[in-house]
């Protein structure tokens, strides 16, 4: 017996209001995170903001899973967590590699300019 599958109409509407309010709140928060990702001066800022959006999306999916009474949406929540972690790992590695490569090139150019 789950709490939200109730016969009481008042309780049903209360659950509905709570869930929709939470979803709207999360949507507004995600918008602010998106602004941070666009505005963020450094790459790390953007990755942090995207990570924050991912966390909020996970809560959104979990709320939707309860609201729609479809338990399998929780699977998608788990997959989303994995993929967002993987995104952070890959992005940080790639950016570090790109930065070091650029540094090497700059050094070489300076040496060439000196010589």
């Amino acid at each position: 017996m789950t709490g939200y599958e109730t016969a009481d109409p008042a309780l049903q509407s209360a659950y509905r209001i709570l869930f929709i309010g939470a979803l709207l709140f999360l949507a507004v928060m995600m918008l602010f995170c998106f602004l941070r990702a666009v505005w963020g001066p450094r790459v790390a800022d953007r990755i942090v903001a995207v990570n924050m959006i991912g966390t909020m999306v996970m809560v959104t999916i979990a709320i939707l899973a309860l609201m729609q009474k479809e338990g399998y949406l929780a699977d998608i929540c788990l997959i989303y967590a994995m993929i967002s972690f993987l995104a952070v790992v890959v992005l940080t590695k790639v950016y570090m590699g790109v930065y070091r490569e650029r540094q090497e090139k700059r050094k070489e150019e300076e040496e060439n300019a000196d010589a």
């Binding site: 450094r42 790459v43 790390a44 990755i47 942090v48 990570n51 952070v88 790992v89 940080t92 590695k93 950016y95 570090m96 930065y99 070091r100």
Partner: peptide
């Protein structure tokens, strides 16, 4: 940890 490492390496 990875993001902090990225920031420390590239800044």
């Amino acid at each position: 940890h990875l993001i902090a490492r990225l920031e420390i390496t590239t800044d």
